[in-house]
């Protein structure tokens, strides 16, 4: 499973949204109905799945699905 697919799978599960809603430019808070605690939980799930650590400072910059995918790819040393 690609990083994109895995990220979307996590989002669908955590935020209880449909795959169709998960377009790259979708904002977690504005488009997918997440609140700040949802976001913390979502990032925790990603940390766990991808074996990475995301600081609170970096968390602030992740607003959309594309942000998350790019960030994880960068962190894993892949081109984003």
């Amino acid at each position: 499973m690609s990083i994109e697919e895995k990220v979307i799978e996590i989002i669908v599960e955590q935020l209880d949204v449909t795959r169709e809603e998960c377009v790259p430019e979708a904002s977690f808070i504005e488009d997918l109905g997440a609140d700040s605690l949802d976001l913390v939980e979502l990032i925790m799930a990603m940390e766990e799945n991808f074996g990475i650590e995301i600081s609170d400072e970096e968390l602030q910059k992740i607003r959309t699905i594309q942000d998350a995918i790019s960030y994880i790819k960068k962190k894993k040393g892949l081109a984003g």
């Binding site: 605690l37 913390v40 939980e41 925790m44 766990e48 650590e53």
Partner: peptide, 10 residues
Amino acid sequence: PRRLSPFTIP
């Protein structure tokens, strides 16, 4: 501590 759910306290 980093793995604690943000929904723990509520």
